[in-house]
């Protein structure tokens, strides 16, 4: 008798396949990174127009943390809106749902893909932002540390955003609805990340305050991603 062995692929394997699929689509179409990158550049241009009259009059370093996060939030909103559009075409999502696996893996894979796109955009945007607006200023020595709040914030944006874009995928007026749901929900994270980024750029004696902000942001990430992990199955089953 021939023994056939059917082994379910491990969760990690499923995750890797789903993630590679998203990255491969992106690598071939370059749709997401192009549109998000262009949008970020346009927002920076708008900053240029709105700050042109005052740029020499005040210390832009104080505002730079907030301005940087505005670009990131709006750019990520654009990307998240599109992150499920390709899954809806040709009912690709239904195909994925037919696979007998834990639905939370889909959440994690999609979230990681969104996170990677967001990080790629930031690698382009943040140096551009510094080049355009902070060239004449002298940031504090801690300025390089802003990668930590950028990373922590991006993880949260990707997690919350993936959860919400799954919700808005099936709704009327989904672009507006995603913003309506996303911005209030992201707010605590945004607040903590902006304060950490600003403190790092401007420089502060109170290192404890920076770590407190980062801990708040990290805690919010953990709660939201855990909730997404638990609730994702219900979203896809509905």
């Amino acid at each position: 008798m021939v023994r056939t062995e059917m082994r379910n692929p491990s969760t990690l394997c499923q995750f890797r396949i789903l993630l590679t699929k998203d990255l491969r689509i992106e690598f071939r179409t370059k749709e997401m990174v192009t549109s998000m990158g262009l949008y970020a550049l346009l927002v920076l241009t708008v900053y240029g127009a709105s700050l042109a009259q005052t740029a020499w009059g005040f210390n832009i370093l104080q505002m730079s943390g907030g301005l940087l996060w505005v670009v990131i939030i709006f750019t990520s909103l654009l990307g998240l809106n599109r992150s499920f559009s390709q899954e809806k075409e040709f009912a690709a999502l239904d195909g994925i749902l037919l696979v007998p696996m834990d639905r939370s893996v889909i959440f994690l894979a999609k979230m990681t893909a969104n996170l990677i796109f967001l990080l790629v955009i930031q690698i382009i945007t943040v140096p551009l932002f510094i080049f355009f607006f902070l060239a004449t200023t002298t940031p504090a020595e801690t300025a390089l540390l802003i990668v930590i709040p950028l990373l922590v914030g991006s993880i949260g944006i990707a997690g919350i955003g993936t959860l919400l874009s799954t919700i808005t995928m099936h709704t009327r007026g989904k672009d507006v609805l995603l913003a309506v749901l996303f911005i209030p929900l992201i707010f605590p994270l945004l607040y903590a990340c902006v304060s950490a980024t600003s403190m790092m750029l401007v420089g502060t004696d109170d290192l404890g305050a920076i770590w407190r902000s980062l801990a708040l942001a990290g805690g919010y990430d953990v709660i939201m991603i855990l909730l997404g992990w638990v609730l994702y199955d219900f979203l896809l089953s509905a």
């Binding site: 959860l163 919700i167 808005t168 099936h170 709704t171 009327r172 007026g173 989904k174 609805l177 309506v180 749901l181 209030p184 929900l185 605590p188 709660i223 939201m224 909730l227 609730l231 219900f234 979203l235 089953s237 509905a238």
Partner: peptide, 30 residues
């Protein structure tokens, strides 16, 4: 307010209820 906007944006009753429930739970985190 977003909870109610979400509810009005979905037609299918069961999907509306499920999505609203998920959003209600994450709202409570705040």
């Amino acid at each position: 307010i977003a909870y109610f906007i979400l509810r009005t944006a979905i037609d299918a009753p069961e999907r509306k209820a499920t999505f609203a429930a998920v959003f209600g739970i994450i709202t409570f985190v705040d």
